[in-house]
Design a protein around this nucleic acid. Structure first.
Lengths: 206, 206
DNA sequence: TTTACTCCGTGAAATTAACCACAAAAAAGG
DNA sequence: CCTTTTTTGTGGTTAATTTCACGGAGTAAA
């Protein structure tokens, strides 16, 4: 009798709700409605209510939702009411930019290990973090508590690097390499490929 | 009697098909099947056939698809059989990384203008490109032929910058700022927010 | 030529996702 | 207290998306 599982597409919208609600919180908005929240992010009020109802009853008729309370609840659902350690593999231009990005730290994601296969970079530091060689990856990742990796290596090295990460205990990968990764079904992968997004838009630019 | 419009979700898969097919092409694979292509990117063969059938008949029974021919067709459908000019707004760490990224040039996207509001950066160069001040944005973008912008400014400046870009003739925005943009319905926006993707994955990491 | 395979394109069926509309709860204003 | 307004949570409906499954075109080999 396991509870019915939540559609992935619903889970994928929760971070957007959370982002909008955290923005409201920062701006001192105490209460909101599915209507107002929906308008701010372009999603129907009914959709938001249906999505949230999958996880419990968070609102009050006539009043709407307490922003603070709903933020807390969504953070708990997404497990972001805790800090997460990240591993960064590939310290090129993009990896360097990600290491400097304050948006991770602000929202509870901390890069704790960085790797690169370029001998010139190994031993240097990136944002206070030493860059280790790829040979040290398995040992250092295995003994860390990181479960998430960001992959910013060239496409040609992405699959073998992913394999290593998984062998080292990584369970989720944010893949910036422009290629599909082949992973076991219990490993979660999300993709970020700006060219794919651009090509999606050029379709409509006729 | 305009032809029925193609679902956006189908359009969104085409760049993934194209990416896999271009990879095959580089590796000398001349022919493939919906089965093989599907396995390589984790999409069912039926789905691929159905998607492609929206645009025409590109395969041959018993043989499958000519990789070269299908690449050509998809490039034409997505309008990426031409070069596209890009505007980059926000030359921070991320903007700098994007300006250096070879993946854009390789696939026909060229950054032709860069802007930043930091007086220290204005006048300097980024990848051979001068950085202009935000005051020059409207004038320079209007007189360029760029229709696509990449937005890598802080969230607090994203909406007003987007408004300016749209006023200057930009019709598609790739938004790296962690917030929803409010734009007219004929403007296309795609979002890249790594934190949102990480939060999607932490849901499953329990 | 014949037989055995392969694999596309597609109508139909099944599944999934989105939307609607309303009862009921809460608040506000007499 | 009563009336009006707001807004949730949800059962039921509609719409969109995916999968199934098959006719038939093409290939291969004897």
């Amino acid at each position: 009798m396991t509870q019915k599982s939540i559609p992935d597409i619903v889970v994928g919208r929760l971070p957007r709700y959370l982002r909008a609600l955290e923005y409201m919180l920062r701006n001192g908005i105490k209460t909101t409605s599915s209507q107002e929240l929906g308008e701010s992010i372009g999603i129907s009020a009914a959709q938001i209510r249906k999505d949230l109802s999958q996880f419990g009853e968070f609102g009050k008729q006539g009043t709407g939702y307490s922003v603070r309370y709903l933020v807390d609840q969504l953070q708990a659902i997404l497990h972001v009411n805790q800090s997460w350690d990240l591993v960064l593999v590939g310290v090129g231009d993009l990896g360097t930019a990600l290491a400097a990005y304050q948006g991770f730290i602000n929202r509870g994601f901390h890069i704790v290990l960085a790797f690169d296969n370029n001998p010139i970079k190994v031993g240097k530091k990136i944002g206070g973090l030493p860059i280790y060689s790829m040979e040290e990856l398995e040992k250092r990742v295995s003994t860390s508590k990181a479960k998430i990796a960001m992959l910013t290596v060239p496409a040609s090295a992405a699959q073998e690097t992913a394999d290593k990460l998984i062998k080292s205990g990584i369970r989720a990968i944010l893949n910036y390499a422009p290629m599909q990764l082949n992973v076991p079904s219990d490993i979660h992968v999300e993709y970020i490929d700006p060219v794919t997004k651009l090509q999606h838009m050029t379709y409509y630019l006729g």
